[in-house]
Amino acid sequence: MHPAPSVIVFTTLSGAGFGLLAFLALGLLPVYGLQAFLIWGLGYGLAVIGLLASTFHLGNPQRAWRAFTQWRTSWLSREGWAAVAALLLLAPVALAAIFGGGLPPVFGLVGAAFCLATVIATSMIYTQLKTVPRWTFWATPALFLAFAATGGAIMTGQALLASILCALLAILMIVAFKLGDRRFGEVGASMGSATGLGSVGKVRVLAQPHTGPNYLMKEMIHVVGRKHASTLRRIAVTLAAILPGLMLLFMPPHPFVLAVIAAIHLMGAFAARWLFFAEAEHVVGLYYGQR
């Protein structure tokens, strides 16, 4: 699949943002006043920048409001609702932290639940697509949740919890890479089943239907970046999980150190999300004899 920058920015930043908001909503970082303003502002900023980025790849962004109408069937629509609900429900919690004043913890709990729902809905947009076998199994929602939780834990300075989450994330990323590599074969789509000519014999492309590239090939058949996939996998796991995990264990949880760790984690998360798209093969490639 084409790794569109807007979609990578959207899923990575909004995932980290909702992870951070969930941790703040659960009251894991007792901050007040200016500190609360800055950290809640960071959470809202990441989530909102991510959501805005998602509108950049639309053909007609002026109609984006229509995406809220089909929550009964569409994960994309559900994601919109969950995101807006989480941001609105957490506003009183954030304001209470900034300006003082107590709110019963149930406000934060409900808000955190909607943050969780948003991340799950984002992951389900991809997990639901049978056409992209690498995405359609449990590892996709697990990875999106692990990234959100790890990012949230780092940014709220939960050193021990964050380093445990980093270890989990590293294992999950490696397992997802390995299992993902087998998914296309497991689903069983082939040039034979795509054309139905497999029962006649071995199918090979004789002539492509068009001489130039088209939307399908640009969008679904991304072969350029896969050349360096194995190197990028190592970079992604190192930056997103291993290095932040070690730094959390051996460095003091000073805000500046945490900011550096968060930045390194996010760079790894961007690399991982780039691979998530670039490595995913769509079955339509079979018609073109490509993956």
Binding site: A67, I125, L129, A189, E219, V284
Partner: peptide, 18 residues
């Protein structure tokens, strides 16, 4: 249509073009 392209991703047959 907002042109998000998700339906084209969901189609196994490449029947939709933005």
């Amino acid at each position: 249509c907002i042109g998000c392209g998700l339906c084209a991703w969901a189609c196994p047959y490449g029947a939709r073009e933005l």
